[in-house]
Amino acid sequence: MQESSVRNIQILYFARVKEKLNYSIEPLSLPESIHTISDLKRLLAQRGESWSEIFSADKQIRAAVNHELVSDEYLIQDKDEVGFFPPVSGG
């Protein structure tokens, strides 16, 4: 593997996503086939039933990268912080 293709990211989960997965934060070394947020969701959805419910069935889950909302087409970079969460309900 070329050095340029190494992408180590941090994933954070919030609110009902965090509770359902029982995960709040994890480091992940991205496989070469994973490029976009959409690819990452597909990868995470394979981990089991709760993961599939969140990352495949639930179309409302939002993603942020380095604290900015992004679309599913965003190209993930090395050292990105990716946050997954449901629609917000503060205020």
């Binding site: 609110a15 946050g83 969460f85 449901p86 917000v88 309900s89 503060g90 205020g91």
Partner: peptide
């Protein structure tokens, strides 16, 4: 306030006598 309600990353959970639940976005 309108932007904050729609976009700021906060999530509310209500704790009721009968149990708890996440508040859905409106």
């Amino acid at each position: 306030m309108d932007y904050l309600k729609a976009e700021a990353p906060f999530w509310k959970k209500e704790i009721l006598p009968a149990g708890e639940h996440w508040v859905e976005a409106k």
